[in-house]
Structure formats: structure tokens, C-alpha cells
């Protein structure tokens, strides 16, 4: 069996169109109160670029390619990790009336699910 994916021509355009439409619909439902975490959260999602960076770096065969590939992974990892850290912190702060008051939130942000370096 062959698992190599080939996305060419119109297939790519269909994929882009559906993804853009899906993104538009999903994001359109997010209330204004969450727009900052939404922006940092979507910022985190494009941190997936780090996967492309790893691919490029692993396939590097010259010093120049290695250097640029290293740069790509470094920046991509920063995008992903930073985006996650700030979004998670912000979302932990939102609470309803009657929930445990002010101090709970500071600790909440620190109780952390393990994540990648």
C-alpha cells in the first residue's frame, strides 16, 4: 500500500476553501469577550508550522540549509509554546459569579498539564 499523499491542483484549492470556510464559521461563533484568547489561540494553532520546520531541517544537506532549518524550528517552537502558554493563562482567569474568588485563578494557571518543552 502507498500512504504518500499527493495534493495537487484543484484538490489543494478545495482543501483551502473548506478549511477557510470552516475557520470562518467556527470563529464567527466566538463571543467578543473571548477575542483576545481567540487571537492568541489561533496564533498558537499556526505554530504547527514547526512540523514543517522539522521536516525541512531533517532533510537539510548543506550547512546553509541546516542553519535556516534550525531557525525555522526555533521560531516555530517559540510560536507554538508561547501561544499555548499565554492562551491557557488567560482562559484560566475567566470565571462566573460565585465561583472561588480571586486567589484561585493565580494557582489555577500554575497547575499545569505537562506539555512539550
Amino acid at each position: 500500500m502507498q500512504f504518500q499523499i499527493a495534493i495537487t491542483g484543484f484538490i489543494a484549492l478545495y482543501l483551502f476553501m473548506l478549511a477557510a470556510f470552516g475557520g470562518w464559521v467556527i470563529i464567527g461563533r466566538v463571543p467578543a469577550i473571548l477575542h483576545t484568547p481567540l487571537m492568541s489561540g489561533s496564533n498558537f494553532v499556526h505554530g504547527i508550522v514547526v512540523v514543517g520546520g522539522i521536516f525541512a531541517l531533517l532533510n537539510a544537506s548543506t550547512v546553509q540549509e541546516q542553519a535556516i532549518g534550525f531557525f525555522a524550528v526555533l521560531l516555530g517552537a517559540g510560536n507554538a509554546a508561547g501561544g499555548y502558554a499565554v492562551t491557557d493563562r488567560m482562559l484560566a482567569m475567566f470565571q462566573v459569579s460565585g465561583q472561588k474568588p480571586v486567589h484561585a485563578k493565580a494557582h489555577h494557571a500554575k497547575i499545569h498539564r505537562p506539555k512539550k518543552a
Binding site: 495534493i7 483551502f16 478549511a19 477557510a20 470556510f21 475557520g23 470563529i27 504547527i48 508550522v49 512540523v51
Partner: peptide, 24 residues
Amino acid sequence: EGFVLQNPALMIAGMVVGAAGLLL
């Protein structure tokens, strides 16, 4: 770049964020 690398996860994630950013 996801298209160039033939990686659909990058393509989808990138486009979703592109649309979200445009909407915002």
C-alpha cells in the same frame, strides 16, 4: 508552505487561522 511540503495538517491549520484572522 503546507502545500509545498504536501502536509495537509499545515494547510488546514494555516487556512483556518487565515480565515479567523480575516474575520477578526
